[in-house]
Design a binder for these strands. Structure first.
Lengths: 300, 300
DNA sequence: GTAGCCTGCTGCATATTTTGCACCAGCATT
DNA sequence: AATGCTGGTGCAAAATATGCAGCAGGCTAC
């Protein structure tokens, strides 16, 4: 919407930290952009940006104002989707920040289901770790977050949470594969392919190890779950994953999984959340409902 | 703020119900105003107004959009007052819708106190009955409402409530003045000067009467409490008022008051409220706190 | 220490947008 | 049928936004 253009521009400048840089991406001259900012600042009677030799930085007032801008922009989206709803066509865009485990199977499937009912709805899905996901919500660059073991700061409003026990993934021919539940101490005899420390699964494992005064020594460490699975398929190593992150074709890959004993590593929590107090666009709200139903159906 | 001008205009058009009429008060030509509306409608892809031969009326989409507009406008006020707060000067404007009883003594005094601390804050005070006050909140034409016996629809969020017993007001020389608590049946022997039915006090009295299968026969009826007091000062009539609505100089007027027996007429409730879910501007929020403290101090 | 490079900012001519006037068509009231 | 209201449109004038060229000032690298 045109009347919010300047506000969009300010948002962009704040993100980039430079008027000239932002102008380039915004298809506008730095002159014009600069003057729009000056005009707004005059209207407000306060400087939104501190001018530094290297660019600009939000002032205290700017922080407040920018938050207001983002709120307005997201509100407008909501209103537009409500209006579209009136006309019967469900349109809109849903931005999601989520843990890697969700990308494997769960989200693609859920999005396909939703889009088959509402083809006009578009999606953005961003991989974000537990901290970054909450930041994305606060900045309104994401409508929904699906996070495993979130940090849960005050801005994160949980819509639903399900327990996710940690599972061991290994080759079908692995010596441990004949046990139905696997103890942590048995794992230590094998090379470990662990996700990097930013991930919730690793967090749980590290916590459990520290409680026993141990330190996990990963033979292979990666921030990519697919790579870890491939690594496990290639040797007699073990990796760890939560059920929702396991691909449906696990067996076809020659892999299998077993639950880790809960007395060794307690189950983690997968939480669906939004920015506290925000009223979501219709589409995002309905998609959240769908996800919640799916989670309940599958894990409770 | 200039970028919201069109939205302000739309608000005005919606209130007046005519583009030409609105244009007159907005210091703009109907042409320009009309085109601004058309432009917005094109951006939204929906008609905001239904065009009637006699003017315009909000469409369903318009209702949603207008609510959004009012929300935005009031949000901006809040943001501006937050920013002003940053600079140390408490500025802003507070709009209040309230029952008549509050106008006599309580509000003028509270506003004077607040303004002595924050002279840059300005006030609008509107007399609104119980229904209209809540409408004013919903339309965001008022930030706060102080209502006696509110209807309490869902949009009304109570910040605080205090009980207010109904009092009888009469001349100091009145035959009933020697009783400390007055029974309803004793009142019926005298001419009654009653507030009109829209008022909470009258509502309570009517309810009490109906419970006894009576119907109150007012000798004098008025929507102005000051007039009612003067009427009572002029003859041996009785009028009714809640404590907060009694002027401080009651005795100086030759009048006095007694509590009405609570078994006859139960105390009513005076409630301070705001629009549910709305975040008030800083000034309004602080003023509300002050009022709450004052009410607690005086009536609890 | 200075030359180059980046930053935000400004004067002025040029595009673009917005506005107001005059006028049109449609409906309601008289 | 006449009048008076409504919103809507073509066109020229006014107002606004833009882009270019060039400014001062701070950082960085040689």
């Amino acid at each position: 919407m045109r009347h919010l253009l300047t506000l969009r521009f300010i948002d962009a400048v704040a993100r980039v930290g430079s008027i000239r840089k932002a102008a380039e991406t915004l298809a506008i001259t730095s002159t014009a952009l600069n003057r729009r900012i000056l005009a707004i600042e005059e209207e407000l009677g306060v400087e939104i940006f501190e001018r530094l030799p290297t660019g600009v930085r939000l002032s205290a007032a700017g922080e407040i104002f920018l938050h207001h801008i983002r709120q307005q922009l997201s509100d407008l989206e909501r209103v537009k989707s409500q209006i579209d709803d009136l006309a019967g066509e469900r349109r809109g865009h849903i931005a999601i920040a989520c843990s890697q485990a969700l990308l494997t199977d769960f989200l693609p499937k859920q999005i396909a289901i939703y889009r088959s009912a509402h083809p006009a709805v578009t999606f953005s899905v961003y991989l974000r770790d537990r901290v970054a996901a909450e930041k994305a919500l606060a900045e309104m660059s994401a409508d929904l977050a699906l996070v495993f073991e979130p940090v849960e700061r005050s801005e994160f409003q949980v819509l639903h949470s399900v327990q996710q026990p940690v599972c061991v993934v290994m080759k079908q021919s692995h010596p441990l594969a004949d046990q139905s539940v696997i103890r942590m101490r048995d794992c230590l005899a094998f090379p470990l392919a662990l996700p990097s420390t930013a991930y919730g699964v690793r967090h749980l494992l590290d916590m459990a190890a520290r409680r026993r005064l141990l330190k996990l020594q990963p033979a292979i460490e990666s921030d990519n779950f697919e790579f870890l699975r491939s690594a496990v398929a290639a040797e007699e190593a073990l990796t760890f994953q939560i059920p929702i992150g396991l691909p449906a074709n696990l067996e076809a890959l020659g892999l299998t999984m077993r639950h880790l004993a809960e007395q060794d590593v307690p189950p983690g929590v997968l939480e669906v959340g939004q920015l506290r107090g925000r009223i979501l666009p219709v589409a995002a709200s309905r998609f959240a409902e769908q996800i919640l139903r799916a989670l309940i159906l599958r894990f409770e």
